[in-house]
Design a protein around this nucleic acid. Structure first.
Lengths: 346, 346
DNA sequence: AACAAAAATGCAAACGTTTTCATTTTGGGT
DNA sequence: ACCCAAAATGAAAACGTTTGCATTTTTGTT
């Protein structure tokens, strides 16, 4: 026997408030949605009644009508990641300022899970959704399009993206760090990048790095690219192996997590950074600035991306069909810190 | 254009599915909620129709009836924090396995914001909520209680908590690390803890540390406690100042973030860890194991807490009033790594 | 084959709001 | 005081689903 005695006993609804305030439910509804249309004295009475009763509106009931739930989705590869976490926090905080809440889910770099998540969010009637990166299956995109739910791609910038996007130019980030290292005179360089399959961030960065390397005249043989896990401990292990096979004077890391692992690996091997070996990362994760030595890297304005994404989705809601597609490129900042220096004269 | 479908924007509803399958909407509803009560052939037809139409159910409309939204809230001080992020990810993933989604919000250690968040989540009709720690205002707790929304406290364990709780014994964590340091023979110790106001985790840990120090016979003067920001960079700065005023042989840090900052500060000052100075943290954040040297700390099973919390809230939903209060203590593990050693003989 | 019990399905009334349209009230110009 | 437009409010019909109850179909037993 299911307990169906769940009827809102003692929990006041809009009609109880209306009754107590001596107005109609419609007016109470207006008080909450468009306060300026109810007269001062009436407003006061409703306010009082709602307060006395401890009324909390049911936005779900409301959203059956106006098609807006006040909830916006965010789908990330993983929450448990320093740099995404910063973006998520900023996104969420900004949404709260817009009187929206965030529904978030992680797919673990699995496109099928992403599809399932989109469906699940749609069942909850999200008003919009931000997806990380450009690699997505068609199915979820179609589901969103069919329902005209605003969707944007964040983290990456591309001038020809199909979805509106807010993000950084990862190609440029790869170029920036590579150019820095090669300009210092390094030639024995290892490129350490996360698996580029299903991860367009890593792919673009690597492409940028290769491009810069070519510009500096490195031969294909000299461009030594290694797959590297996205995890400090595993990266440390991997870097240790790589350096034992063949020494290098510089490590170009696809992101700061790998950079941290690389730095610790070098320290464990007794190498002095940057005297014996230089290291660069990409991202400027929390902590990168304060390590010893500080990690030279490219700052990705994660919080800014989060804020902009929240603003954009809210605005797309408010403008409806009138909103125009857009592509925003957030600026990258090169952060020169202690982990890089010219190679020692042999 | 779309005359046949009389629903908003050509998006099919349950009645369109019913029509196409040649059954009543009620049956379609049952197909989704209690599939076993619809006959095989009928089930097939509905499945087909739903698939053809690309139907996605509207759980909000449904939740007006059965009082369950399938959404569960999580309120944290901040998302952007290595150890919370792990817990959040586990919580969210586990909820997804239960066919629920997570609504998350951060209050930034501000109880008023927490109150506002609880209200906002209640407006979205969450089925339950997990709050971090025991320090909460009465108002939000009452709002939850009045509506009989399951609420649990996570992260901390206390044998006499008012809310059901799932967490670790922070007092014990403080004891553990302090006992370790003092057992090694250190006497010139600094205790570095986050602001204990509105943060019962930090408070309990500090109390545990003090208790252990007393047991080891440290005088009140020897128990040098310093407030320390919860941020690697600021902690590094603070530790640098503290050590310049008076040298120490060991630093007991209220959490790993402070521990990281302390380690980097020591390295910047040219101190060798653990030869010149020992450092312990609490938490075992991602990365702590792989730094050079590895940070001795106490592992807090963040993911486990997240999983257990998700399970508990779902179960409280399913059992309704029949669910009994509980208090779960998750085990702490002391992780002895490279950052601690006996003090050098003077 | 007949019948009752059980299972499946349909009908229509909710659920708690919002919104359209109609009605009342207000305020300012004579 | 009167009138009219404008502003405020009310009445009732949605919104898309679930569910209690009624009805039909199936199943099992003789």
């Amino acid at each position: 026997m299911n307990e169906r005695i769940r009827s809102r006993k003692g929990v006041p609804g809009i009609v109880e408030v209306a009754q107590r305030a001596g107005v109609s439910p419609a007016t109470v509804s207006r008080y909450f949605n468009t306060p300026h249309v109810v007269r001062g004295p009436t407003r006061k009475r409703i306010e009082q009644a709602a307060h006395d009763l401890g009324y909390i509106r049911d936005r779900m009931a409301g959203s059956m009508h106006n098609r807006f739930s006040g909830t916006i989705g965010l789908i990330v590869p993983t929450i448990d990641n320093a740099i995404f976490a910063e973006m998520i926090e900023a996104f969420s905080t900004r949404l709260a300022q817009h009187d929206r809440t965030m529904l978030i889910a992680a797919h673990g770099y699995d496109l099928d899970r992403e599809t399932a998540i989109v469906r699940s969010l749609l069942e909850r009637r999200i008003d919009g959704v931000a997806l990380v990166g450009f690699d997505h299956a068609d199915v979820p995109l179609n589901m969103l399009a069919k329902r005209e739910i605003p969707a944007i791609s964040i983290w990456n910038y591309a001038p020809n993206s199909s979805l509106p996007c807010i993000g950084a130019d990862n190609f440029e980030a790869g170029q920036l760090v590579t150019d820095h290292i090669l300009s210092l005179g390094h030639r024995k360089v290892a490129f350490l990048f996360a698996d580029t399959k299903g991860n367009d961030r890593a792919r673009d960065r690597l492409d940028g790095a290769k491009s810069a390397a070519k510009t500096h005249g490195l031969t294909d043989e000299e461009i030594a690219v290694f797959d590297c896990p996205y995890d400090i401990g595993q990266a440390k292990q991997r870097v240790t192996e790589i350096l034992q096979v063949q020494p290098r004077t510089a490590l170009i890391c696809g992101n700061d997590v790998i950079g941290h692992g690389a730095l610790f690996a070098c320290q464990a091997l007794g190498l002095s950074v940057p005297r014996d070996i230089s290291i660069v990362g990409i991202g400027d994760f929390r902590g990168s600035a304060h390590m010893e030595p500080g990690l030279t890297t490219v700052r990705l304005p994660a919080r800014k991306i989060g804020r902009l994404a929240a603003d954009a989705l809210v605005q797309m809601n408010e403008m409806g069909a009138a909103s125009k597609p857009f592509r925003s490129k957030v600026p990258l900042t090169f952060m020169h810190r202690g982990s890089t220096a010219p190679p020692q004269r042999a």
